[in-house]
Every structure is written in structure tokens, then in C-alpha cells.
Simulated scan of single mutants.
Amino acid sequence: MTKLTIAAAAAFALFATQPVMAQDAAMFASTSKLTQTGGENIYKAICAGCHMPEGQGAIGAGKYPALANNPNLESAGYPIYLIIHGQKAMPALGNVLDDQQIADVVAYIRTNFGNSFAEPVTVEEVTDAR
């Protein structure tokens, strides 16, 4: 396969699959805040669209790094900062998620997808990173 064919197939796969959050508008009580709770539910609602359901990441309109087996998640501060402030293709979600939601989703990605960083993620860590 040529690079163009591979890129086209990857782009089609990303756009042919609707993001989970588009499928369930009921999870949004407001247009500016995600009301979903629990790390897994938040991941499925907002993160899986780019990082993929199993955290394997993707390349398409941007590069969405794999969260699976990712040593960068060892320090909770790193994903907390990226979720709040964004970076490159990662949008800033600090205005969409509250501190508890961010703590929950960071704890989820750090203990799933082959990651085993079980140290707790606290709301205070998130508050301090804002």
C-alpha cells in the first residue's frame, strides 16, 4: 500500500466512526460542561474519539498518541496538565471538565490500557495545576 492509501484509509476510519459523545447527547446538561462522571465514562464520552476505545491512539487529521502502555503517564501531573491546557492536536478541556472529572479520567487512563500507575490522583493536584 502506498502512504497515500494508508493515510486515506486511516482518515476514513476516523471519520466513519462517530465519536461516542455525538451518540449520546443526553450526557450534556449544559453546552459548556460535560456532566458524565467516572473515569471510564468520561474517557468513552470525550477521549476515545481521538485516542481510540482501547487507548491505542491514531494518526489522521492529527497525531493522537497511544495511552496504552504509555510511560509518560507515570506522573499524574503530565496528563492533568495536558487535559487542562491542551497541546498541539489535544484541545484544552479545563473549561469542559471539573477537577473531579479530570482526576477521575486521569486515574482511569493510568490504571487501564496496560498501564499500572496505581498512585491516587487527587482533586487537589488538579486544582493546583489550573
Rank of each mutant, 00 (worst) to 15 (best):
A89C: 15
Q56F: 06
A66R: 03
T17M: 12
A48E: 09
P19T: 07
T17E: 10
I83S: 04
L34F: 07
I84R: 09
F28Y: 07
N70I: 02
S75K: 09
A13N: 13
S75D: 11
A89I: 15
A61G: 15
K3Y: 14
A25M: 14
G49Q: 07
N115A: 04
A25D: 14
A92E: 06
A58E: 05
A11V: 15
A58T: 02
Y108F: 13
V96T: 12
P53F: 09
A7P: 11
I46S: 13
T17N: 13
N41A: 11
A13M: 12
Q23V: 01
T127C: 06
I59G: 11
V126S: 06
I6P: 08
A61K: 15
Y78F: 14
Q23G: 14
S116C: 12
A7C: 14
I102R: 04
Q36D: 10
K3N: 15
E119D: 01
S30Y: 00
L97I: 02
I84H: 07
A48H: 02
I6N: 10
M21L: 13
T122D: 03
M21I: 14
V105D: 00
A10D: 14
G49L: 05
T31Y: 10
A8S: 09
P19G: 08
A9Q: 12
P53H: 13
H85E: 06
A76M: 04
G114A: 10
V126L: 09
E74V: 08
Y108M: 03
I102D: 02
A89Q: 15
L97M: 04
F117T: 02
Q56S: 09
G39N: 00
P79C: 04
V105M: 00
L14V: 15
H51L: 04
E54C: 07
A13L: 12
P19C: 10
A22K: 07
A89G: 15
K33P: 05
I83W: 04
D24S: 11
I109V: 10
M27A: 12
Y64C: 11
K88T: 10
D24R: 07
T111W: 01
A25S: 13
A16L: 09
A76I: 01
I42H: 00
E40G: 06
C50V: 05
P19M: 08
A16Y: 12
D99S: 04
P71S: 00
Q87N: 13
C50F: 04
I42T: 02
A118C: 04
D104I: 01
I102H: 06
V20T: 13
I102A: 03
E124V: 09
G49S: 09
A29I: 11
G57V: 02
